[in-house]
Amino acid sequence: MATEATRNQLAVIENLDEKIKEVRQYIEEQYEKNKELYDESDMERIRNDDWTVERFIRRRKTLKESKEMLDNTLKFRHEMAMPRLKDDDFPEEFHKIGTIFCYCNDKQGNGMIYFRVRLHRKVKELEHDFKQFILYQVEKMDRITNGNGMAIVFDLKGTGLANLDMDMIWFLVSSLLNYYPIGINYILVYELPWLFQSAWNVIKGWLPTETRNKIKFCKEDEIFDYINRENLPMYLGGTCRINYHHVPKNSRTSMEIGQERGKTPKEINKYLKQFQPLLDEADEESKILLSEN
Results as ranks from 00 to 15, higher is better:
R84N: 08
N72G: 08
K273H: 07
H120N: 08
Q25R: 09
N72Y: 04
T209S: 14
V173P: 01
I20E: 14
W206Q: 09
G109Y: 04
D89P: 12
G98A: 00
G258W: 04
N293P: 03
K131L: 02
K35L: 01
A199R: 07
Y190H: 15
L16Y: 10
V189L: 10
G205I: 00
C104K: 15
D17C: 12
E36Y: 09
R58S: 03
N146L: 13
N8A: 13
S66T: 10
M43T: 08
Q9P: 11
V153K: 04
N163L: 04
N185T: 13
Q259S: 05
A282Y: 06
C104H: 15
K216H: 08
D50H: 11
E292N: 08
K124G: 02
N15A: 11
K61S: 13
K33M: 09
W200Y: 10
F90E: 06
V53P: 10
Y26K: 02
E44M: 11
T6H: 09
M150R: 01
I100E: 00
T211W: 14
C240A: 12
N48T: 15
R121M: 04
I134D: 01
E139C: 03
M141D: 01
Y26V: 13
H78D: 09
M234Y: 09
L290N: 15
D106K: 02
F76D: 02
K35F: 03
E256A: 12
K266S: 11
W194C: 00
Q197T: 10
K64D: 00
D165L: 05
S41W: 09
N185F: 12
A11W: 05
K64I: 13
E281C: 12
D283S: 02
L16Q: 15
N293I: 03
M1I: 04
Y235C: 00
P91D: 07
K270V: 01
N201K: 14
L85P: 08
S175L: 02
L232T: 12
D106A: 05
G258K: 01
T52C: 00
L232W: 06
W194Q: 05
I223L: 00
K33F: 02
Y244A: 08
E285N: 09
F171M: 01
E93I: 14
W170P: 02
C218F: 09
E68P: 04
M234V: 15
L290W: 05
H78L: 06
G262P: 10
N228C: 11
Q25M: 06
L156Y: 05
E285R: 06
R212Y: 12
N146M: 10
F224V: 09
L63A: 02
V247Y: 09
N48P: 07
N48K: 15
G262D: 05
L172R: 11
R229P: 04
R121I: 02
M150L: 14
L188A: 06
G205K: 00
E139A: 05
K19T: 14
C240W: 00
E220V: 09
K64E: 06
D42N: 07
N178H: 08
E285I: 03
E256K: 13
K273Y: 00
M255V: 03
Y271R: 05
I144E: 13
L63Q: 05
E267K: 14
F196H: 03
Y26W: 08
Y180I: 12
D50K: 14
R212S: 12
W194A: 01
T62Y: 10
E191W: 06
D39P: 12
F171S: 01
T145Q: 11
T3P: 09
A162R: 15
P83V: 05
M80V: 14
L85V: 03
V23M: 06
R229V: 13
